[in-house]
Design a protein around this nucleic acid. Structure first.
Lengths: 143, 143
DNA sequence: ACACAACCTAAAGCTACTATAGAGTCAATG
DNA sequence: CATTGACTCTATAGTAGCTTTAGGTTGTGT
C-alpha cells in the first residue's frame, strides 16, 4: 500500500507518517521505481501501535522505549510495565496540578461576580496580587 | 533595577524577561549608557501579573487580552470575566480528557500484572490491538 | 591590569506536528 | 497521445513558550 492508504487506515495524515519515519519511529519502507513509499502489513501494525500510544498521550521518547523493549524478548516485560506505570503517574500528576489550578481560578473568579468598572475588578486585582507558590516544575511531558 | 534583579524577584529567568519583551507582553524599558535594561516598579508589577497568569496556565494570547482590557477602564470588566470563564472551561475540559485517559491506561495496565515474557505481555498486545476512538481534537492550549 | 559576574544580541533547539512551496508520478479521459 | 487531476516527493517554516548556545560587551573588585 502507498502512504495515503496507510495513513487513512491508521487514522492519521500522510505528513504524520513521513514525520514518524524521519523521527525513527517507523522504519524506511521500500520504494517504487517512481520513488513512492510502499508499505506492508508490518508497517501498518507498527503505525497502529504508535498511534495508540499517542492517543494515550505518550511521548515519542516513551514510544521509542516501548518499541525497543518489544523486540528484546530476552528482557521480559518488567521494563515495559515500568514505562507504563511511569506514564500513568505522569497523567495523575497532571490531573492533580490542573485540579489545583481550577481551585485557584474559581477562588479568583468569586472576586468579580458582577459587571463593574475595571478599576474595581476583583480578578485583575487578584491576578496582580497573587502570591504565587512558584509554578511547580514540569516532570511530565503533558502540558 | 537591572534585569537580573527583576527576574529574581519575579521568580523567572532573565531570558524569560527578554522573551516577554520581544513578545510585546512587557514594554521596552530604558537603557543605561552601557545598554543595560533598567526597570522600575511598574515593570515589576506587570511582570508579576504575567507570571501569575502563566502560573494559572493562561496562554500569551489570553494574557495579552487581559492586559489590553485592563487599560481600557471604559469597557468595564465583563470582558475580563469572559476571558477568565473561558480559561476555566479550558482547564475543566483538559481534566476530563486526562481522567478518560487514566481510565484507559488503568484498564490496559490490568492486562499485565506479572513479570513475564514480552510475547505474552498484555500491555503490548493491548497497545497493538486497541481500537482507538479517534483522539479528540484540542480546543484548548493546555497540552 | 586583569579576572569574573552580569549583561547584550541573534539564532538554534525543544515537542509533535501542520502547513506551504514547488516539482515529479501515474491512471484515466478526450 | 496529450492533458488533467489525484497523489506523491523533498525541503522548509511555523506553532507555543520558553531554554540553550555562541560570541561579544560592560562593570566591579583586587
Amino acid at each position: 500500500m502507498k502512504i495515503g492508504e496507510l495513513a487513512q487506515v491508521a487514522q492519521c495524515t500522510v505528513e504524520t507518517v513521513r514525520y514518524y519515519e524521519k523521527e525513527g519511529l517507523l522504519s524506511e519502507p521500500a520504494r517504487t521505481p517512481g520513488n513512492f513509499r510502499v508499505y506492508g502489513p508490518e508497517h501498518l501494525e507498527r503505525l497502529r501501535f504508535i498511534r495508540n500510544c499517542r492517543a494515550l498521550d505518550m511521548s515519542h521518547g516513551e514510544i521509542h522505549t516501548l518499541l525497543n523493549l518489544a523486540v528484546q524478548p530476552a528482557e521480559g516485560c518488567g521494563a515495559i510495565n515500568a514505562v507504563f506505570d511511569q506514564h500513568i503517574a505522569h497523567v495523575e500528576e497532571r490531573i492533580q496540578e490542573l485540579a489545583q489550578l481550577k481551585l485557584q481560578l474559581n477562588t479568583l473568579r468569586q472576586r468579580c461576580r458582577t459587571e463593574q468598572a475595571v478599576d474595581a475588578c476583583g480578578i485583575l486585582h487578584g491576578l496582580a496580587a497573587m502570591e504565587n507558590g512558584q509554578k511547580s516544575e514540569r516532570h511530565t511531558h503533558l502540558g
